[in-house]
Write a protein that binds this DNA or RNA. Sequence first.
DNA 1: GCATTTTACTTGAACTCTCATATACATTGG
DNA 2: CCAATGTATATGAGAGTTCAAGTAAAATGC
Lengths: 152, 152
Amino acid sequence: MHPMTRWLDDDEQRTWRNFVAATQLLYAALDRQLQRDSGMPHTYYVILVGLSEAPERRMRMSELATWAQSSQSRLSHAVSRLEERGWVRRERCPEDGRGNFAVLTDEGFTALAAAAHGHVEEVRRSLFDVLDPEQIRALDDICATVRSGLER
Amino acid sequence: MHPMTRWLDDDEQRTWRNFVAATQLLYAALDRQLQRDSGMPHTYYVILVGLSEAPERRMRMSELATWAQSSQSRLSHAVSRLEERGWVRRERCPEDGRGNFAVLTDEGFTALAAAAHGHVEEVRRSLFDVLDPEQIRALDDICATVRSGLER
DNA sequence: GCATTTTACTTGAACTCTCATATACATTGG
DNA sequence: CCAATGTATATGAGAGTTCAAGTAAAATGC
């Protein structure tokens, strides 16, 4: 069947557990900060950022899902919640009757702007402030590598 | 009020987005693999690992929560689900009437052993196989630093 | 001793995410 | 043109997580 398990040696084990611990603590801190100060999870924040950077602050659902590394279903649910808050609105796509645009409203833009400061500070506090420039370069390199390995 | 936002510069922005993309893709891959092959999310796997390494395969709930970086509530719910599957059992603590032990059952140990191969392979495929030894050392270092920054 | 506070853990509701399925429009091949 | 297939998105149920209470036992203080 499958080959013998290539178990992690002690160093790898330690690295892996440090990785899991660090990333989970980091996301927990981010989510807590965003939820507390802006009432949204990190995934919603990412969606708003995507829209805010898109031309006319609008994007097709599927394009936005790809951008935000989200499943289409997750994005659809999330946009529904964001619509309820008046931060995003859906618009039917004229060229393609199946398609929908997600459009960032002015209220959504305002909410994002209000959330950004605290979020960025948290990212700094949790990550950039504790690493030296060399480590930050290395991290960028590592993440780019892992990312391209997983993106197909 | 609060000081001016120290925005991320272009390099930091890129690093941060690579980090988010890489970690999210990685956890998505892990969770998909574990769910598909073993019917459990990564958080449950971690709980079982913790118990399997504890003396007599048992740990106090709060100790286990700390070990697994979980809230007590999350752990309590998770242990309830794991109990339903017969993988874990609760036992009242004799010395402290408030306390509970979570005990890994033989079925739980078997389930963990069955899950381990595929999980480790996925960790290798997604992370260790794509990085060179230098990068792995750097990652360990970075994660340990971030971790201790966030653990208080 | 007994009231107060703290600790250990559980519970329920609200919310998010996943997975399977459904819907509606578009495209393709004869 | 129309049946078959593919694409874009939505929806509903089930599962996990969070947050705010709730319970029960231990420790503390006077």
